[in-house]
Measured scan of single mutants.
Amino acid sequence: SLEGTEKASWLGEQPQFWSKTQVLDWISYQVEKNKYDASAIDFSRCDMDGATLCNCALEELRLVFGPLGDQLHAQLRDLTSS
């Protein structure tokens, strides 16, 4: 749920159509929501749009996002199937 936050830029759009900015917004949101240590994320490797993100295998997401990769992968699957 997104109570208390302004409507996120990526909400209501299919992930494969996200811009690079929307991807970063979504990642930041997941980091906050999961109380994850953002210093463990290599943000220089997050410079990708939604289509690229959706094409990432779980292993790739783990490389870039560490333990949060599993969470991101699961969330993406939910978003693309809805």
Rank of each mutant, 00 (worst) to 15 (best):
S1K: 14
S1W: 04
L2R: 04
L2I: 15
L2M: 15
E3W: 03
E3C: 13
G4S: 08
G4C: 14
G4K: 12
G4I: 13
T5V: 07
T5A: 03
T5W: 13
E6R: 12
E6S: 10
E6D: 14
K7V: 09
K7A: 14
K7C: 10
K7T: 06
K7Y: 12
K7F: 05
K7L: 14
K7E: 08
A8T: 15
A8M: 15
S9N: 04
W10T: 02
W10F: 08
W10S: 05
W10C: 04
W10E: 03
W10K: 03
L11K: 12
L11E: 14
L11W: 09
L11Q: 13
L11P: 13
L11F: 03
L11N: 06
G12H: 15
G12R: 09
G12C: 02
E13Q: 08
E13I: 10
E13V: 12
E13Y: 06
E13F: 04
Q14L: 11
Q14D: 13
Q14N: 11
P15T: 02
P15W: 00
P15R: 00
P15N: 01
Q16T: 02
Q16C: 09
F17R: 12
F17C: 06
F17S: 13
W18P: 00
W18E: 00
W18A: 00
W18F: 01
W18S: 00
W18L: 00
S19F: 01
S19A: 03
S19K: 06
S19M: 02
S19T: 09
K20H: 05
K20V: 06
K20I: 03
K20R: 13
T21V: 06
T21M: 04
T21L: 14
T21W: 06
T21I: 08
Q22I: 15
Q22Y: 01
Q22F: 01
Q22G: 02
V23L: 03
V23Q: 00
V23N: 02
L24E: 08
D25T: 03
D25C: 07
D25H: 15
D25E: 13
W26R: 01
W26F: 01
W26Q: 01
I27F: 04
I27V: 06
I27P: 01
S28W: 08
S28Q: 13
S28L: 13
S28C: 14
S28M: 08
S28G: 13
Y29E: 12
Y29M: 07
Y29A: 10
Y29K: 11
Y29D: 09
Y29W: 12
Q30A: 15
Q30R: 03
Q30E: 02
Q30T: 14
V31L: 10
V31R: 06
V31F: 04
V31D: 01
V31W: 01
V31P: 00
V31I: 14
E32F: 02
E32Y: 02
E32W: 09
E32S: 08
K33C: 10
K33E: 14
K33M: 04
K33A: 09
K33P: 02
K33W: 10
K33T: 07
K33Q: 12
N34Q: 09
K35T: 10
K35M: 04
K35R: 13
Y36T: 15
Y36C: 10
Y36A: 11
Y36S: 07
Y36F: 07
D37G: 07
D37R: 08
D37A: 09
D37Y: 05
D37K: 04
D37E: 10
D37T: 11
A38D: 06
A38Y: 13
A38F: 07
A38S: 11
A38M: 06
A38V: 09
A38L: 05
A38W: 10
S39T: 08
S39M: 05
S39D: 09
S39Q: 08
S39C: 06
A40L: 12
A40T: 05
A40S: 11
A40F: 04
A40Y: 15
A40C: 09
A40H: 10
I41S: 04
D42N: 09
D42L: 04
F43L: 13
F43Y: 14
F43I: 06
F43P: 03
S44K: 12
R45Y: 07
R45I: 06
R45H: 15
C46H: 05
C46S: 09
C46P: 05
D47N: 10
D47C: 10
D47E: 05
D47L: 10
D47T: 14
D47H: 14
D47Q: 08
M48A: 02
M48D: 01
M48I: 08
D49H: 02
D49L: 03
G50R: 00
G50T: 01
G50A: 01
G50W: 00
A51I: 04
A51P: 12
A51T: 11
A51S: 09
A51K: 13
T52R: 11
T52M: 05
T52A: 12
T52E: 10
L53E: 00
L53V: 03
L53S: 00
L53W: 00
L53M: 11
L53T: 01
L53R: 00
C54S: 08
C54K: 05
C54L: 13
N55I: 03
N55V: 07
N55F: 04
N55W: 03
N55D: 12
N55Y: 05
N55E: 15
N55Q: 11
N55A: 12
C56I: 12
C56P: 00
C56Q: 08
C56R: 10
C56E: 04
C56S: 12
A57V: 08
A57P: 15
A57T: 12
A57M: 10
A57N: 15
A57D: 04
L58C: 14
L58W: 05
L58K: 09
E59V: 04
E59K: 04
E59I: 01
E59G: 10
E59S: 12
E59C: 05
E59F: 04
E60H: 09
E60A: 02
E60D: 04
E60T: 08
E60I: 03
E60P: 01
L61E: 01
L61P: 00
L61G: 00
L61W: 06
L61C: 03
R62G: 04
R62D: 06
R62W: 03
R62F: 03
L63I: 13
L63R: 13
L63G: 12
L63C: 12
L63Y: 15
L63D: 13
L63V: 11
V64M: 14
V64L: 09
V64T: 15
V64S: 13
V64K: 15
V64Q: 10
F65S: 01
F65R: 00
F65L: 06
F65T: 02
G66P: 02
G66Y: 01
G66D: 01
G66A: 01
G66T: 00
P67K: 07
P67R: 12
P67G: 11
L68Y: 10
L68K: 04
L68Q: 04
L68V: 12
L68C: 15
L68P: 02
L68D: 02
L68T: 06
L68F: 13
L68W: 05
G69E: 00
G69H: 01
G69R: 01
G69T: 11
D70F: 06
D70Q: 06
D70R: 04
D70M: 10
Q71F: 11
Q71N: 13
Q71C: 15
L72V: 13
L72E: 00
L72R: 00
L72C: 02
H73Q: 08
H73D: 12
H73M: 09
H73T: 02
H73L: 07
H73C: 03
H73K: 07
A74P: 06
A74C: 06
A74Q: 06
A74T: 14
Q75W: 13
Q75E: 10
Q75H: 11
Q75D: 15
L76V: 09
L76R: 01
L76E: 01
L76C: 02
L76Y: 00
L76T: 01
R77W: 04
R77E: 06
R77M: 14
R77Q: 09
R77P: 01
R77Y: 01
D78N: 14
D78A: 08
L79V: 09
L79H: 05
L79F: 13
L79A: 06
L79W: 05
T80F: 01
T80Q: 15
T80G: 04
T80A: 03
S81K: 03
S81I: 13
S81Y: 02
S81L: 09
S81G: 11
S81V: 13
S82R: 10
S82V: 06
S82I: 10
S82T: 11
